[in-house]
Each structure stands twice: as C-alpha cells, then as structure tokens.
Design a protein around this nucleic acid. Structure first.
Length: 772
DNA sequence: TGGAATGATGTTTTT
DNA sequence: CATCATTCCA
C-alpha cells in the first residue's frame, strides 16, 4: 500500500492522477517507468479492471519488464493488462477483426526485406529503371506516406507529393505504391506500416468496432510519446475519445525516431486535443552523477525550441567525462577494451555494468575483436537478427505459406528450396498466368490446367508435389500444436535433411540455428500450455509473435556481459559505465544529417540519449582514421565534443593530441579538408600480422554463439606450416602443401590431394591437421 | 536447371 | 568489405 511513498512529489502526483488526460514530461533518468508502473498499479488498486487498461510501449522488452514490475505490486492480475508495442497490440486486434477489412485471419506480416523484394519485383515488372527507382528509396517514400495515413489514391492526388516525385525523376512512384498496396492486399499481407494504417481504417470505417474498443480501453497509457507518428497518434486519439483517460509520457529531448515518421508535434497536438489536460514534469534525475547530468544539459541546450525543463540531480559529483583519441578504429577498440578491463578490475564492477554504444551497427566488429582478445564476455544487440538469417527466414516461409497460401513472398522464397527443379523459367511462366487470370501464384500452381499453364508433365508433377506437401501441412494447422507442426514441416519440407547433409562449418551452424528455432517454438508451445492446457498455441500464433520480435527480446543465459548496441537500441536502458565510440564528424553526426538543422538536432538528441545512459562514468572516444566500405578514411572529432561544457570533461592532453587540439579549434574552417582524401589501399604490416587468427567473423553464427562469443579463440596455429608440409583435410584426406601466399589470417595454401587433386584453400577455414 | 565466378552497389538509426 | 545480382558455363 505504501508503494507510492517512495515517489517524489511530481512522480506521486502523476501516479495518483486517475481520471482525465495527463501528460508527463520526464527528463532522462527521472523515474518515468516507475511512474508508469505505479500509476497502473494504483489504477488497479482503485478498482480498475486490468482488462480495461491499454499500455503502449516502444519495445516488447519494455512491455515485458513493466508487466513484471507491476505484477510484483498487484500480483498475477497484471497479466491481464493489454500491454505491448503499438505493432503487437494492434496486430492482435487486426487479427481478431480481420474479416471486417477483408483480410484472412492468418494474415502475414511482411518484414522490411519482404517489402523491398516485392517493391523490387513491381519496379521490374512495370519496366522502370531500378537505378532511378531504387527499391529502398521507393519503400521509404511509401512508408512515409503510410505513416501519415496517405493512401495510394491520395498520394496520386497530392500536388506536393507528385511535384516532389517528378522533381526526383520518379513520376511513377504513385503507381508503384498503388500496385504494392494491391499486391500486399492480395497476398493477405501487411507490412509494419500497414499494421497502423489498417488499424486506422478499421476504426474509421467500422463504428461498432471503434465503439467496442473505446469501451474496452477505459485507460490508455502511451510511453515514449515523443516517438509516435501520425498514424499512432490518431489511433490513440480515437480510442481515447470516449473516456478521455489518456496518459502520455515522453521527453522531447529524447526524440530520435523522426527519420521514421515520429512527430514531436504530437506533444503539441495533445494540448490542443485535451485542453483540460494536466501536465507533470519530472525533473529530478536519479540515474546519473552531477557531471553527467550537467554535461548532457550543456549539449542539449544547443537545440532550439524545447519544452522548458530543468533536469537536475542530488547524486554525487562523479568523475569527469573522459574523451580519448586513437589512431584508428582498431586502436579505439583496443583502448576501450583495455579501459573496460581496467575499470572492471579497479572499481570492482561487473561486465554487465558496461555498455559500448555506437551510431551504426557496422562499428560493432572492431569492438568485438578487441573484447575477444581480452576474453571479456560481451553481447551484441541488434544488427543482423537471428530471425533475418537465411535459413530461419526459409523455414519461417514454409510456416507462413502453410498458414496463408496467398503469401507471395514466402512462396517465391521456398518454391525451389531445397532444390526441387522448379527454376526461374518455370516461375516466370507461373507469374505470367497469375497476371493473366488475376490470381495468386499459388492459385496457378494449385490448378495449372485451369490456368492454362504450359509446362512439361515432369515439371507439372513437381509443382503438384509441392502443393500437396503444403496442403498436407495446412490440414494440420488447427489440430497440431505449434511445435509439432513446426517439427513436421522442418522435416518433411526437406530442409533439415538438406542442412544436415551440409558438413561445412556454415552448414552445421545453419542446422544448429534451425534446431534453435525449433527449441524456441517448443518453449513457446509449452508456455502457452501453462496458461491454458486445453488450448496450446498453434503455428499461426507463433507466426504473429515472431514477426514482431527482435533480438532485444531474447533471453540471455549468461547475463554478466558487456553490452554492445546502437544508441537507438539503448534508449530506455542504463549502465554504470558507458562508452560512446566513433565520436567523429560524418559518423556521429552522420553524414546524412549535417545538411539540415532539424536532422542535426535529432543527432544531438541522440547524443544526449547516449550520455544520459551513464550512471557513474561516461567515456567518449574517437579515431583519426577508420575503415569505411573497406577503405581507410580520415576522420575529425565530432562537433558534439566541443559542445560539452569544459567543466565536465577530461580531454586528452598528451603530445599526440596537442596538435589535434589545435585542429579542433580550427575545425569548422577546415571541415571538409580531409573528406576526399583516400588512404593507401593496403593495411600496414603490423595490423595484418596478427599472432592469432580470429575465427571467421560471425556470418553464420548461431544465436547462442552470437550471444556467447567471448573467449573463443579456437583457431589453430598454422605458423609451422611451410611448403612441403603434409596435412590432412576433413574432406580431401591427406595432402601436401605446394605453396603459401598472403599474410595471416588470410593465408591461402595451394595443396595437392591425391584424392581430389590440387586445391586452393584459405587456412583459417580449412581446418587442416598438420602431420609433420 | 544449377553452380561458380564475376561485377555492381550500398549504410544511419528500427517496429 | 559483403552482399547481392547477373552472367556464363557445364
């Protein structure tokens, strides 16, 4: 009962506010999540039915954590709260109401890759030049339109949009959008943006549905409100129209998703929509030292037009923010890894209390290597997620096609995987007939005679086999549990056999990944049995969930690791020790953002977010040179470093940085001096002579491996290998080395095998055993 | 049709 | 540098 007594005045007022609209402007580290959880707990204690509370968060992880925290206060009732991301909550609702908007109950969710592939196919089919109509630019335009609820029809009618497209040389973009819209609809698929757009359509066109959910959701809470886009804004507005019990929480200083349509104006709109709203400001920071809070404030004040607030803290003064310089990206990584090692030792900190934050995912690689060398356990978040790997997407495509045969992208993906002799020529013919008869690829394949498909009997047989297999899966969709059916599909599709037969390290790891996915589905199924033993989850349930899952949502077996992630994914998290790396012009702020004020301000907010993740120590670092697209480029320190108040930083004062500091002052003048300078094409010798070969870097790592990749220096030592050595290879047997070329770790050997002839092999992949 | 080999092309950030 | 797409050959 006295859970509220741990809150400060502003927090408590917000948490105890029950009826009517409220907005909470919460500075970084000001206990925003506490207010949200306590407010929900308070609602429940005051007799509000948990089923009538809708809480929308930004990530699944945030939702899960909040739910756990609430249940420690109110008990198991907490699980009845509607809580999740916009995308997950409304995909659930869309699924329930699917037939209203003419979608199958098991509609597919297209991920970004599916969307791009489809758009690419449309561009090609329309005969447009894909050098001008670049698929991802087109997708970006379409996505932006959807986030602003602009339908294809309105898109074509909008004078400004049309002028923009014409100016950009893409006058037919509207047509592409229209076709894409149509194709998704026919495929029974929605992309991420559709989940919000179609929800809006549902609530707009079906008053009874709107009424139902307005009634259901008597209390709405929206976290990270500054990052909502127009489509999300309107959903909230509509749902809250009946009860006006809407609580939004956000911080304009931490708005970092404008690039994908987030609209800070939503905060201003809120004031207009609910003139009687109450405003609460949380300004006391409980997370960070005085140095960190003040340094962050000194940075963010360079932005114009913010909501006035004064973030302050009662915490200790703390260490100054350290800024360090390195010669190269690899040196930077070594320096950071060493610093983590020393700090962990010197201050008795656990590795889990460290985070390395960067602007782009590509920066993780050098950090990864440096940490591995020191045997520091780490975990990389984001990047190529488990669910985006080929083999995973392939198996998921089987699932998808089983649940929804109209799913064109899934069909195209697996029609000839594993190889079953249905190649491009055949599929081109199928596509032609599908257009002819205005039906889906599946419909053509399922009844080729009716659709006039002209193919040899042998090929027709193959198509029939494929359809029969999928239909057999489909027949069990409702009767088998998710796991049982998944297992059957993995086996009978031939995927498991195919991967099992591949004994290359990549093949083995793909097989492992599939096993891991199946394990995940087993967990999912078991969990659902615990909730309701009579209705275990079926495969479509899993598909709905998996489409919106990210790596951030994965459980971790060894939690004591250094975290590596982009600043974007660090939002909402906190760590005692934070390293922000790559503090360089054209990287952070990114090159794309430096030409416009608003983009630059978003980068600055991103920097603000980065610094404010730190509780005790913040460390900023930059390199003088960096590999970018495989080429060495020279870098200058980020302008943001200069913006931090001198009182809170420790700048490098050693000889090496002296000249740099001069540069620093003159930087603005000289700012483009180096930008086109190209480095010599080859790396210098000391870099390439690594004493220990690093295992082939993470292309096909299993999820477990990716999470667990510390201390795995498992490569063999080939230094004793010379021309003339006898070796054994797993596949080719015994052989003799004829020639060695290239520096470690990329040394290549020409080897003669009596069994297989002469082969060129890269040592680090070859797994050779040296015989003499 | 399938596989290997070569060449173009692209990177911000994520649900 | 990495991935993809295209191309060419078996």
């Amino acid at each position: 009962m006295d859970y509220l007594s741990t809150l400060n005045t502003a927090q408590r007022q917000a948490a105890e506010h029950i009826e009517g609209p409220l907005m909470v402007i919460a500075g970084a580290g000001s206990g925003k999540t506490r207010v949200l959880t306590y407010r929900i707990a308070h609602l429940i204690h005051n007799g509000v039915d948990p089923f009538k509370i809708l809480a929308l968060t930004f990530t699944n992880k945030a939702a899960k954590e909040m739910k756990e925290r609430i249940s420690t206060i109110v008990g198991p009732e907490a699980k009845n709260i509607w809580m999740g991301t916009f995308h997950s909550v409304f995909s659930r609702i869309l699924r329930t109401e699917a037939e209203k908007i003419n979608f199958p109950k098991n509609f597919t969710i297209y991920d970004t890759q599916d969307s791009r592939n489809l758009i690419k196919a449309i561009i090609k089919q329309m005969g447009c030049d894909d050098k001008i109509y670049k698929p991802n630019i087109c997708h970006g335009r379409i996505s932006a339109a959807k986030n602003n609820l602009i339908s294809p029809k309105r898109y074509m009618e909008d004078v400004t949009i049309q002028a923009d497209d014409r100016e950009a040389g893409r006058p037919r973009l509207g047509e592409i959008y229209a076709e894409y819209w149509q194709r998704c609809y026919k495929a029974g698929a929605m992309d991420f943006d559709d989940l919000l757009f179609r929800t809006n359509i549902l609530l707009r066109d079906f008053p009874d549905v709107l009424y139902k959910y307005q009634n259901l959701f008597q209390y709405l809470l929206v976290d990270e409100y500054q990052d909502t886009n127009h489509a999300q804004y309107l959903i909230v507005k509509k749902l809250a129209a009946m009860h006006h019990n809407v609580c939004v929480v956000g911080d304009d200083a931490q708005s970092i998703y404008a690039f994908r349509g987030a609209n800070i104006q939503n905060i201003l709109n809120f004031r207009k929509d609910y003139p009687d709203y109450k405003l609460y400001k949380l300004e006391q920071n409980y997370r960070s030292t005085k140095v960190i809070v003040n340094a962050a404030n000194s940075v963010i004040k360079n932005n114009e037009g913010q909501i006035e607030k004064n973030v302050w803290t009662d915490n200790l003064e703390g260490d100054k923010i350290k800024i360090t310089q390195s010669a190269s990206d690899n040196d930077e990584a070594k320096l950071v890894a060493n610093s983590i090692f020393d700090t962990a030792l010197g201050h008795q900190e656990d590795y889990k209390d460290f985070a390395i934050l960067y602007r782009t995912n590509a920066q993780s690689r050098s950090m990864e290597e440096a940490l591995r060398r020191l045997n520091i356990p780490y975990k990389i978040f984001g990047g190529l997620s488990f669910y985006q790997r080929k083999e995973i997407k392939d198996l998921l495509s089987y699932f998808r096609l089983t649940a929804n045969p109209q799913d064109e992208e899934a069909l195209k993906r697996i029609i000839n995987y594993p190889k079953r002799g249905i190649g491009n020529t055949t599929m081109d013919k199928v596509v032609i007939q599908a257009n002819e008869h205005q039906c889906s690829l599946w419909d053509v394949m399922d009844d080729p005679k009716d659709k006039g498909l002209d193919l040899s009997a042998a090929v027709l047989n193959k198509l029939e086999d494929f359809c029969t297999t999928i239909k057999a899966f489909r027949a069990q969709l409702e009767t088998k549990t998710a796991f049982d059916l998944a297992q059957e599909i993995a086996t009978k599709s031939g995927m498991l056999r195919e991967l099992y037969a591949d004994k290359t390290p990549e093949g083995v790891s793909r097989h492992d990944n599939i096993q891991e996915l199946l394990n995940g589905i087993q967990d999912f199924t078991e969990r659902s049995k615990n909730e309701d033993p009579d209705a275990p989850a079926i495969l479509s349930d899993f598909l709905m969930d998996v489409a919106l899952l990210t790596d951030l949502d994965q459980e971790d077996d060894d939690p004591n690791r250094v975290s590596l992630m982009t600043i974007h994914s660090a939002k909402g998290l906190e760590y005692p020790n934070v390293y922000v790396v790559g503090m360089e012009e054209n990287l952070f702020p990114s090159q794309m953002s430096i030409s416009s004020r608003s983009d630059l301000e978003e980068e600055r907010r991103l920097f603000y977010v980065a610094i404010t993740r730190a509780e005790k120590r913040a460390h900023l670092s930059y390199a003088e040179s960096r590999f970018k697209w495989g080429q060495l480029t020279y870098c200058e320190p980020s302008r943001f470093l200069e913006e931090i108040d001198e009182n809170f930083v420790d700048r490098p004062l050693d000889v090496g940085s002296r000249s740099r500091n001069n540069n620093f002052a003159a930087k603005v003048v000289a700012s483009s001096k180096y930008s086109d300078r190209k480095a010599p094409p080859k790396r210098t010798a000391p870099e390439s002579k690594k004493p220990v070969a690093i295992p082939p870097s993470g292309k096909q790592k299993s999820l477990k491996e990716a999470m667990n990749s510390a201390g795995t220096q498992n490569s063999s030592d080939y230094t004793s290998l010379t021309a003339g050595s006898a070796v054994t290879h797993a596949k080719f047997g015994k052989g003799k080395v004829l020639q060695l070329e290239g520096d470690a770790p990329n040394t290549m050997a020409t080897i003669y095998f009596p069994s297989a002839g002469q082969k060129k092999l890269i040592l680090k992949f070859a797994k050779l055993t040296i015989l003499d």
